[in-house]
């Protein structure tokens, strides 16, 4: 008698709106149903991307507020090389998808496509450095105007993040060469997500700095 009441009471008092198979009610969220709630690494990565997004939202708000104020100063024209760099980075997003697709279908060439991604990424960084050097040579200095400051600051921070991604890339490449990834798991998925994010971030920064 007591047993039955007890069994009911928590359910009863918890209210009917707590489904027995809620997020935690199944098997502790450890595998099974899939989705981001079953994959700590993926969730962790997305949270991290959220944090980086907030960082750049912080800069964006500063940029917009400053742009609207009186002391904006001169405009910076985008050096043509930036377009090339943009294409390089976008191409690297295509190659990482190529590697991912080959891994999924268990075709050869994963490491080669991955290598192309890293090479393009490295070229992008080199390209950005070249842009900075040419600007400095032209006398477009960091502190000379607000636009310059934001340009160097935001592109620099983006490159810092990209260098971080390249370190991760080395780990991923080593694993791919040793065939650590199996077709069943999307082993490159997390890295690809981060890489695309940085590509998207670059496009966003480019638009923010020179289009809007």
């Amino acid at each position: 008698m007591t047993a039955r009441t007890l069994e009911q009471s928590p359910v009863h008092h918890q209210g009917a709106d707590v489904p027995p198979a809620g997020p935690g009610a199944g098997d502790g969220g450890s595998g099974g149903g899939g989705g981001i709630l079953a994959d700590p690494a993926r969730l962790g990565l997305w949270l991290f991307l959220g944090t980086i997004t907030m960082l750049f939202i912080g800069f964006t708000s500063a940029y917009i507020a400053r742009r609207a104020s009186a002391g904006w100063g001169g405009e910076l024209t985008p050096p043509p090389l930036l377009w090339v760099n943009t294409l390089l980075l976008l191409a690297s997003s295509v190659t990482v998808e190529g590697a991912r697709r080959r891994l999924r279908r268990w075709q050869p060439g994963v490491a080669a496509w991955l290598g192309a991604t890293g090479a393009l990424g490295l070229l992008f960084v080199a390209g950005q450095v070249a842009v900075w050097r040419s600007l400095v040579a032209r006398g477009v200095l960091l502190a000379a105007s607000a636009h310059n400051s934001f340009f160097y600051l935001l592109t620099g921070l983006h490159v810092v993040h990209l260098l971080g991604a390249l370190v991760w890339f080395l780990v991923v490449l080593a694993k791919a060469r040793r065939l650590r990834y199996t077709p069943g798991q999307d082993g490159l998925g997390l890295f690809a997500t981060f890489w695309h994010f940085l590509g998207g971030l670059w496009v966003y920064l480019f638009l923010l700095l020179f289009v809007f």
Binding site: V18, G24, G28, L43
Partner: peptide, 25 residues
């Protein structure tokens, strides 16, 4: 603090034991 935060959210969302729904936390 950011590293800790990633861990906190992920652990609470992903590693709850069987039967522990969010509204039983």
């Amino acid at each position: 603090f950011t590293m800790g935060g990633l861990n906190f959210v992920t652990t609470i969302l992903n590693l709850r034991t069987k039967g522990l729904s969010m509204f039983r936390l």
